[in-house]
Simulated scan of single mutants.
Amino acid sequence: MVKKGSTIQFLLKGMAVGESIAYLSVSEQEKILRAESQHELRWGSQTSLALATTASLSRGYQLADVMIHLQNWYKKRQYAPMGTIQDIDDVTKQALDNYTKNRDILASGISTDNADSENILSRMLPVSLYLYHQVGVSFINDESAMLMLHRIAGLTHNDEGALVSVGMLSLIVSQILDGRAMSDAVENGLAFGFEYYSRHQVFVDELKAFYELNLPDFSNIPADKIQLDGRASTTLEAVIWSLLNSESYTQALKKSLIHGHSNSIVPTLVSAIGAIYYKDDLVLELGQNLIVKRVFTTVIGQAERSSRFNLLNKPANLS
């Protein structure tokens, strides 16, 4: 049966569903995943930032425009209607405040160690789709595409470790979009990432954070061996572990919730990636329970009409 819904629709609604469910009690999570609850779903800042990024890229790639959309979320509460759960991490806040003061698009991002943060990963997923649809699965061979990826991330989180995590995640997503099985997508994405970043001296030292994730038996490690510490690379470990140990969207989301209420970003990412991989109708059904559906209708409609997130779009070299 052919599933209805575009890739960007599954991604954004999957993200919102995952983030919303992460805030609920365990009993309510279980009811929702058994389709026994119509609980209103209230997404958080991870989804809102992804919506802002998508809205900007629907107009084409302009780095300043991405920053303006992030500022509109921060200052005007766009993409974050009343009733949604919004907060801002210290790194993003500092970067957006920097831009307000200096208006320097390339100098606002934070490059200190605390910027190697999991908070960059969710809003970069729409960028992964954009690059795949505009350039193709081989965007890693296009330096202008990789520069775009790093610069959009670097608007807020400009630490080398964060940029490598964003690259690894994006390469895995591109493999999924290219039709690879999950295990192959992870293996190929990591291999391409190691090959690319090992050629750039500024990133070489960051690769050690991904050695365990790159082991053949990574999926067999116990979940409690993944020590979430807020860094992008360890969160990526938990996300990949959840996806590799699942055979359905629902199972993947359940696995992501093993990591507990202390981390809402893991289920946000797992739900988003699982949604585009499985294209389960449950994602769209649960999307009907989002507190303000109009926001998604508007942003998804813009993205679909732009053809910049369209799988049928013929890849073209960005340069």
Rank of each mutant, 00 (worst) to 15 (best):
V2C: 10
G5E: 14
T7N: 12
S27Q: 14
Q29A: 07
K31M: 13
R34H: 11
R34F: 09
R34V: 15
S37A: 15
H39Y: 09
E40N: 14
R42Q: 13
W43L: 04
W43C: 05
G44T: 07
Q46I: 09
A50G: 08
L51R: 06
T53K: 11
G60P: 09
Y61A: 01
Q62H: 13
M67F: 09
Q71F: 07
N72C: 12
K76D: 06
I85F: 10
Q86I: 15
Q86E: 09
D87A: 11
T92D: 01
K101L: 10
R103S: 10
I110V: 11
D116G: 08
E118N: 15
I120N: 11
S122C: 13
M124A: 08
S128H: 11
Q134G: 03
G136F: 03
I140K: 15
S144E: 05
M148K: 12
A153D: 00
G154H: 05
T156M: 06
H157G: 11
D159K: 14
D159A: 13
G161H: 02
G161M: 01
A162Q: 04
S174R: 03
Q175H: 13
L177M: 04
D178E: 02
R180N: 13
A181C: 14
M182E: 01
S183E: 10
G193N: 04
F194D: 02
E195Q: 14
Y197N: 01
R199F: 11
Q201C: 11
F203S: 01
F203L: 00
E206S: 10
S219Y: 03
P222Y: 01
D224Q: 13
I226M: 06
I226F: 03
Q227V: 09
L228C: 04
A232F: 02
A232N: 05
A232M: 05
S233F: 02
S233V: 02
T234I: 04
T235H: 13
L243I: 06
N245I: 08
N245A: 11
N245C: 14
E247N: 15
T250G: 15
I258D: 04
I258R: 14
I258S: 14
G260L: 03
S262K: 15
V270E: 03
G274T: 01
I276S: 08
Y277F: 11
K279Y: 14
D280W: 07
D280Q: 08
V292S: 03
V292D: 00
V295M: 01
T297Q: 11
T298C: 12
V299I: 11
S307C: 13
N310V: 10
N310F: 12
L318T: 06
